[in-house]
């Protein structure tokens, strides 16, 4: 597998949110606005790439029986680093993402990639995998957030903590508030997964017919 194919698989075919159903808790909880999705996705990508590379580098010297605690220490170190740096230099974004940053520690995407991929593969492959998975997740978050933000508030790209009200597509009074409530998250995610499956299945049958 080349760098490119390791990177590409995380975007669609093995997309963590839509295909592997990993990291559902943060996916549903923060996908209220595109700005949230980008912030959370990039923070997780940074942790994912860092932990993947370190765990891959340490794979030869990591004893199998204590690999899990070692993964946790590596991931926790990266997460705390991101948390502190964000709090110091991007306090507004930190305020929005709040509790979700420490929760990256238990985000199963990162753990799943460490266990299933990075601990068995080379550093370059692991870097590609982490980058692809992270960006795939970020894109999934942005897609989900865009739909929920538009339906639920009538705006797009609002960043309230920077005082930017977003681009208003239709009036607040018309917006279906449920889209940004928890049930709206589940329903939107379910419909998106269904849609994606429909498209891939159609393509598959077409390819088989050809």
């Amino acid at each position: 597998m080349s760098f490119k194919s390791e990177f590409n698989k995380g975007i669609i075919n093995e997309n963590p949110a839509f295909r592997m159903l990993l990291g559902m808790c943060p996916t549903l909880a923060i996908s209220l606005a595109i700005s949230n999705g980008i912030g959370m996705g990039l923070a997780a990508t940074f942790v994912l790439v860092g932990s993947n590379v370190i765990i891959s580098a340490l794979r030869k010297v990591t004893p199998g029986r204590i690999r899990i605690p070692i993964f946790i220490v590596v991931i926790a170190t990266f997460v705390t680093t991101v948390d502190l740096i964000m709090a110091a230099f991007l306090p507004d974004l930190h305020e929005v993402l709040g509790i979700f940053i420490p929760l990256i520690v238990v985000n199963c995407i990162i753990f799943a990639r460490a266990e299933a991929f990075a601990s068995q593969r080379g550093i370059i492959d692991s870097l590609a995998d982490g980058l692809g998975m992270g960006i795939g997740w970020t894109l999934a978050l942005c897609g989900l957030s865009a739909i929920r933000e538009l339906l639920g508030t009538g705006t797009l790209l609002a960043i309230p903590d920077f005082g930017f009200a977003g681009i208003r597509i239709f009036s607040q009074g018309l917006a279906a508030v449920m889209a940004i409530l928890p049930p709206g998250g589940f329903i939107t995610l379910g419909l998106l997964i269904g849609l994606l499956n429909l498209i891939t299945n159609r393509r598959k049958t077409k390819r088989q017919q050809v």
Binding site: G173, A176, V177, M178, A179, G184
Partner: peptide, 9 residues
Amino acid sequence: AFLLASWPV
């Protein structure tokens, strides 16, 4: 329930 959650006003 959907309408009440979506358009409570």
